[in-house]
Design a protein around this nucleic acid. Structure first.
Length: 876
DNA sequence: TGTACACATC
DNA sequence: CCGGTAATGTGTACAC
């Protein structure tokens, strides 16, 4: 059976363009529409295996429809230039694939598609039409199916005759009648004013077509509607005509010419490379795989049995492979080294038992280049091998150059640089349960390639860092920080297991009682943890009013439930159940699972190359979101204790660091003055925004001001502020406006930073951390607004991140200089946690805030508050 | 195994 | 095209 796919090229390109953020390739060419189009095309080729395929495009501005009706598509906005400039690339893509494309003067893509669908059907072929335009539904027959893009572009709804009937209750032939009556604003087809989809469908179900509706005006109920139909009689007929796809276009292509089969993989590969579609390269068929492995096989790798000086030259790229994310206590699968003498694979046993190797590792004068310094240091650390002299980290370099890239994996960095010499880890090791180490031959090749990639990429990335003025950020901040973080992770924090277990038991009991009570009040038993079941109980069985919907049903989030509190006794119990349930599963059970058996400690891992702002993140477990707000949750912190008898926990946090940074970069006199006088900033904001004296600031005014300051720090929108204060969006917008009027230099900063970012394409922090914001020029209001808020916020949050990172390095140095036994344990964005022996308490309480406050000099003082306790809970 | 929802922190 | 809202991590439910 012949299988023909007909694609509405303009429609899909348009969809792709708006569905995806404005991506650019390295040369600055916009690629989002091409990328989206390509992924859709690949999916179709893979899923459908068509024998024939054609992409139709609209030719020019004017078509035969304009002659009939000059205002046709008159309201349509001009195609954005960022999209137009991508269309030639889509044509290039199709040519590379050997896919026929067609356009015809005077006709639209629809007409070409209709014509060919008709012809193919007559020949007994199966036809699939792909578009984003509902008009095409009129083409559906027994043999012709239409696929319409949904959200995104690779997601599509399939329409056959039954689906149209189910959705609209009419036949495919009647789609044009539907348009005739209701019109189509996007094509500027008028239809009959006052008749929308609902009415149109009702009329068609009763009378069949536009013509019969018009003829049967007398039988239609409703005076208004009759008048409208009579008055716009001709317009309805015209609209139907405009919506009708013309199927007699003189397409000078035979159906057989549309056949699809072999294509030039080389061409497609180079096309993908040109546009930086590295992720798509792997989806190309085997031909590519072959060329790739040819490239790879050129690397010769020596498997080392006895380590000699040849292997331990300096500088050297070093790979110590640990599988998976979790590198604490994990086995090292093998080592690879690349230096001027070549690339070498050293089996783990040989390396870790070699004095020569161990001595080399800890010799700081032997320079090492690695990928993921922290992982490497920690993994070796667990083998009691001290690694010193790390000079370059490919992971961090890549992250600093552009934190937004989707993968900082070694293979992806390499292929982005046109160095397709490293296989994906997943290909070599497999994933999930099937993950395993391959035979040594393959393993040594893989690791050797990694080391080789690090070795050859180092100069390139270092040069780029230098060009971006990011060398100091890299060498003086992030590189030393990775060592500090590695040490913190390795140290871990002691957790009192029996304390957690005790809390767990108490929680279990209370949860059980609560659950019973909830079932009782509901009148039946159900899973309270299931939002779906809970929604049914609340909004159907108990008849409570739904406040908000999610895409799959009723929302039962806490803010919704709070609005329902008082309407039914069950609500308060559910809220409590949720609160306690969260504590139990995430914090009690979750933490118990990750305590090291022999030491009773927890070793989180910080991701230093993830967030877009420069903050760290923490996983396994996440120790940056241990409860504090509510007392019930806060008690979890009682389980975090010093690891040695008689020691204490010391916590130090920056006070209002982000707003101090804002005061500095905006140079706003009001803000600077406030911080120099060490005022309560929320009260100060209330005074300025509400124009009142300090004594007149009510708690409500302070609360609102706090929320506005919060918004400044996190870059929330008027919508976000309206949600957090439970006020209207308009009121929230006014609030923000009043804030900005009160601090004119802040207002100027907000404006200037966006302007500058639009020019440069990125924003920077005080220490030259970058975040690219291509969406600042998007025509999509939401994407653009979001990018604007990000432009305002990232320098603030990112600079704060810079500062605390600097403080951590300074603090680690200070501990060493002063020969202190105290240990840095955790970082929670603006807070550092230490464990401190009794005899160092005094000096640490002096040093820690001193170092934190001196980390960087701003135009306002930095302030750090310090406190000490027997547990993390008591250090408050 | 992947997605949706809910919720903890800063 | 007619949008969806700070970021990140983790738990449970549920459909596949």
């Amino acid at each position: 059976m012949k299988k023909l796919i007909l694609i509405d090229g303009n429609s899909i390109a348009y969809r792709a363009f708006f569905a995806l953020p404005l991506l650019t390739n390295e040369k600055g060419i916009y690629t989002n529409a091409v990328y989206g189009f390509t992924t859709m095309l690949l999916k179709i080729l893979e899923d459908d295996q068509p024998t024939h395929i054609l992409v139709a495009f609209d030719a020019g501005k004017s078509t035969f429809r304009h002659k009939t009706y000059s205002e046709y598509k008159g309201t349509r906005q001009k195609t954005p230039p960022e999209l137009s400039e991508q269309l030639p690339f889509i044509r290039e893509l199709l040519d590379a694939y050997g896919i026929k494309r067609y356009e015809a003067i005077d006709y639209e893509a629809d007409d070409i598609i209709g014509t060919l669908a008709n012809r193919a059907e007559k020949d007994g072929w199966n036809v699939k039409v792909i578009s984003g335009d509902k008009d095409l539904l009129q083409l559906v027959t027994k043999q012709v199916e239409v696929y319409l893009t949904k959200k995104g572009i690779t997601n599509m709804d399939r329409y056959d005759l039954a689906a149209i009937d189910e959705k609209y209750g009419i036949t495919a032939n009647q789609i044009i009648d539907l348009k005739g009556l209701m019109g189509d604003s996007s094509d500027n087809i008028p239809g009959v004013p006052g008749i929308g989809e609902k009415t149109a469908l009702k009329l068609l179900k009763e009378f069949g077509s536009v013509e019969t509706v018009l003829e049967s005006v007398d039988q239609i109920s409703g005076k208004k509607m009759k008048e409208r139909l009579v008055e716009h009689h001709d317009q309805a007929l015209l609209s139907k005509k405009l919506a009708t796809i013309y199927t007699e276009v003189p397409v000078d292509l035979g159906l057989e010419e549309l056949s699809f089969g072999e294509y030039d993989v080389q061409k497609v590969t180079s096309f993908f490379k040109d546009l930086d579609f590295s992720s798509l390269l792997s989806r190309l068929p085997d031909e590519h795989g072959e060329t790739k492995s040819e490239e790879l096989s050129e690397l010769s790798i020596d498997i080392v049995e006895t380590i000699t000086d040849e292997h331990l030259a300096s500088p050297a790229a070093l790979v110590a492979e640990v599988l998976g994310d979790h590198y604490h206590h994990a086995p090292i699968e093998g080592f690879a080294l690349t230096n001027d003498n070549g690339t070498f694979f050293i089996p783990t046993e040989i390396a870790v038992t070699s004095d020569k190797f161990v001595t080399w590792a800890k010799d700081a004068s032997k320079k090492k280049w690695v990928f993921d310094a922290k992982r490497t240091v920690v993994a070796l650390g667990w083998q009691d091998i001290l690694l010193e002299g790390i000079e370059f980290d490919l992971l961090i370099a890549s992250y600093l150059l552009d934190p937004s890239v989707s993968s900082h994996a070694i293979s992806d960095i390499a292929s982005r640089k046109g160095l397709s010499i490293v296989e994906d880890d997943e290909k070599v090791y497999g994933k999930g349960a099937k993950q395993q180490i391959p035979e040594q031959e393959i393993l040594s090749q893989h690791l050797g390639r990694k080391a080789s990639a690090v070795y050859s990429l180092k100069a390139d990335l270092e040069e780029q860092l230098d060009k971006n003025d990011q060398s100091s950020l890299f060498f003086d901040l992030e590189m030393p920080l990775s060592v500090v973080l590695g040490r913190m992770e390795t140290t871990g924090i002691k957790v009192d297991k029996s304390q957690l277990e005790k809390m767990g038991e108490d929680l279990s009991n209370r949860l059980e009682t609560l659950e019973q009570k909830i079932h009782e009040l509901a009148g039946s038993s159900f899973n309270v943890n299931s939002p779906k079941q809970l929604g049914e109980i609340l909004f159907e069985k108990l008849g409570l009013p739904p406040v908000k919907k999610t895409k799959t049903g009723y929302s039962t989030s806490a803010d919704v439930l709070e609005k329902l509190a008082g309407k039914h006794e069950i609500i308060e119990h559910i809220l409590l159940y949720r609160q306690l349930g969260k504590l139990h599963s995430t914090y009690i059970e979750g933490l118990l699972k990750v305590i090291e058996k022999d030491t009773g400690r927890i070793h989180t891992r910080y991701n230093q190359a993830l967030t877009q702002t420069g903050r760290l993140s923490s996983t396994d477990p996440n120790l940056q979101n241990i409860p504090i707000r509510l007392e019930e949750g806060r008690t979890i912190r009682k389980a975090f204790v010093p690891s040695e008898e008689g020691w204490s926990i010391l916590a130090a946090d920056y006070s209002q660091i982000e707003l101090r940074v804002l005061a500095d970069i905006s140079v706003d006199d009001g803000l600077i003055e406030a911080f120099r006088n060490d005022m309560d900033i929320h009260t100060k904001t209330a005074m300025d925004v509400f124009h009142v004296e300090e004594s007149e600031v009510t708690s409500n005014m302070r609360r609102s001001s706090k929320a506005v300051n919060f918004g400044i720090v996190y870059g929330i929108s008027d919508y976000g502020l309206s949600q957090s204060l439970d006020i209207s969006r308009k009121e929230a917008a006014e609030f923000i406006e009043r804030y900005l009027e009160s601090y004119p230099k802040v207002k100027a900063y907000m404006h200037d930073v966006v302007e500058q970012a639009r020019e440069d394409g990125y924003v920077s922090t005080l220490m030259q951390r970058r975040r690219y914001l291509p969406e600042l020029v998007s025509r999509n209001f939401n994407l653009r607004s979001f990018a604007e808020r990000t432009a305002m916020n990232t320098p603030i949050q990112g600079t704060a991140a810079d500062i605390i990172k600097k403080a951590m390095i300074d603090m680690a140095n200070r501990l060493e200089q002063e020969n202190l036994k105290s240990r840095m344990l955790l970082q929670v964005h603006d807070e550092l946690i230490f464990e401190v022996p009794e005899d160092e308490l005094e000096i640490m309480q002096k040093i820690v805030p001193e170092v934190m406050e001196a980390a960087l000099e701003l135009q306002v003082p930095l302030k750090a508050d310090v406190s000490v306790g027997a547990t993390w809970y008591e250090a408050k």
